[in-house]
Design a binder for these strands. Structure first.
Length: 181
DNA sequence: AGACGGATTGCCT
DNA sequence: GGCAATCCGTCTA
């Protein structure tokens, strides 16, 4: 699957998500190559925006390119990038990165885990990058992929509704995936 | 006002 | 592979 020349945040989440594989996410001094994402839309029963706007999910209906950060299981933070037409309630969940810069800082935040596990899984990714509720609605910095990566689509992880949609996109060769294909 | 359950992770068996 | 940890938006009464 080929990547586009620019990242168009107004694209629907399920269209843009595979194009983000190989792009670089930057948070302060830390960065990593995106290798696993999932798409969520307002028509999608598994999406936080499915039942309309609420105080928690309001960022999903705000400007594109911002973070929607939420607490999962009362323990972990998960980071999405808002996308799609304005107010459309779409987002892309960041699930895994290959660490590039600021690795020492990530290790300090995560403890002694192998580098390829630092940002493997949405909760781990947020912890390694220092993403928490304070970054909700802040602008997400994404840089274009330099090289084309292989991208495959799979079922999303950990959801019960619309579980057969193949809206999880991965670089199958990455060692940083939260789960193998 | 009270109950339910989840886009998870890590430790225990 | 099983399960506890731990918070809050949403649903029900």
């Amino acid at each position: 699957m080929a990547q586009p020349a620019t990242i168009d945040l107004s694209l629907n989440a399920a269209v843009l998500a595979p194009a983000l594989i190989g792009a670089v996410l930057r948070v302060g001094p830390c960065s990593g190559r995106i290798v696993e994402v999932e798409a969520y839309t307002e028509e999608d029963p598994a999406s936080h925006s499915f039942r309309g706007r609420t105080p928690r999910n309001e960022p999903l209906f705000g400007p594109q390119g911002r973070f929607y950060v939420y607490r999962s299981y009362g323990v972990h933070w998960c980071a999405n990038i808002v996308t799609g037409p304005p107010g459309s309630g779409q987002a892309i969940l960041l699930r895994a990165l290959e660490p590039l810069e600021g690795i020492n800082m990530m290790i300090a935040r995560r403890g002694g885990v192998p580098v390829h596990r630092l940002c493997s899984g949405p909760g781990n990714l947020a912890r390694a990058l220092g993403i928490d509720g304070a970054m909700n609605r802040s602008e997400a910095l994404i840089e274009m992929p330099e090289a084309t990566r292989r991208v495959i689509a799979t079922r999303r992880v950990g959801i019960s509704k619309a579980a057969d949609l193949a809206w999880r996109f991965i670089d199958p060769e990455s060692p940083a995936l939260s789960r193998r294909p």
